[in-house]
Simulated assay, not measured.
Amino acid sequence: MEAFLTSLIFVVLAEMGDKTQLLGMCFATRYRWQTVLWGVFVATVLNHLFAVEVGNYLTRFVPISYIQIAAAVSFIIFGLWTIRGDELDESCANAKYSPFWTVAIAFFMAEMGDKTQLATVALAAKFNTVIPVWLGTTVGMMIANAIGIIIGVTLGKRIPERLVKWISAAIFIFFGFVGLYQNLPEKFLTMPFMIGAVVVVALCAYYLVKLEKKPELAKE
């Protein structure tokens, strides 16, 4: 019981204001709250089980910084995907990836190398148990993200859809760049490289906006 309660409290406190809670908030402004909650639940269950059972072994062969870099790049991709996400919103039933899988994949990647995943590994080692820590961290994540989803649902009713989309994309891309800055080797953290990365992402966003406007012009 101690392992469960400790894990639950630790994760709830750690997730307050964390990127995954902000993601839940953003997704809740675009998709049904039930879909977001189930996506978060599935991603958390799988990710934290991975952390407890495999995480400590994986880091022996793959440096955690590589995992965090991959997660950061995926965040930038999700941000650009959000900008071009209108088709997904309009035809979710026929889309290649449904809102549920969009949320689940985003959350799973967000947790890769995140402090709560690393904390799950540490807590499992400390208490030398799997199930209580896994359940505690999972419940803690659900509580923290439920708070974010409630806020997101409230904001979604008051903020224009286009603004919501750009705020969501900006949060994805921001955390992507923060992750890269924190984990890339110092030789890459030069001013030309960083400016170049920002320019490339900005050009991609501009191109996606252009693609978005073409169907609108065709309708007119």
Rank of each mutant, 00 (worst) to 15 (best):
K165I: 11
I159H: 02
A144L: 10
L135M: 12
A169P: 00
G152I: 11
K165W: 04
L163M: 10
I171C: 06
P132Q: 11
T137V: 15
I173L: 10
A146R: 13
V139N: 04
V139K: 06
A146H: 08
T138F: 07
G136P: 10
V153I: 14
A169K: 03
I171Q: 02
W134K: 06
K165C: 04
T137E: 11
K165N: 09
R158T: 10
G156Q: 10
T138C: 12
L135E: 07
L163W: 07
A144W: 11
V164K: 04
A170F: 08
R162Q: 00
V133G: 14
T154F: 13
S168G: 04
I167C: 03
T137Q: 14
P132E: 12
G136V: 05
I171R: 01
E161Q: 15
G156K: 09
G140R: 14
A169W: 01
A144P: 12
W166I: 09
K157P: 00
N145Q: 14
P132I: 15
G148Y: 14
V164T: 01
I149F: 12
I143D: 07
L155T: 09
A146N: 12
F172G: 02
M141L: 08
V164Y: 00
W166T: 01
I167Q: 05
V139C: 13
I167M: 15
W134Y: 14
M142D: 02
G136D: 05
E161H: 15
R162F: 00
F172C: 01
M142G: 03
T138R: 10
L135W: 08
I159N: 02
P132G: 06
G148C: 07
V153C: 11
G152F: 13
I151D: 12
W166G: 01
I167G: 04
A170W: 02
G148K: 06
V153K: 14
A144G: 14
I159G: 14
G140Y: 08
I151K: 10
G136S: 09
S168W: 04
P132R: 06
F172D: 00
V153Y: 10
M141Y: 06
T154S: 14
I150V: 15
S168F: 07
I150K: 10
L155A: 10
A170L: 04
P132K: 10
K157M: 11
L155R: 08
I147P: 02
F172A: 01
L155P: 09
I159R: 05
V139A: 13
V139R: 05
I150Q: 03
I173V: 12
T154C: 13
T138L: 09
W134N: 07
W134S: 06
M141K: 08
W166P: 00
A146E: 05
V164L: 09
I171Y: 03
P132A: 12
I159C: 07
W166V: 00
G140T: 13
I167V: 13
K157E: 08
S168V: 08
I147K: 09
R158V: 10
I167H: 00
V164R: 00
V133T: 13
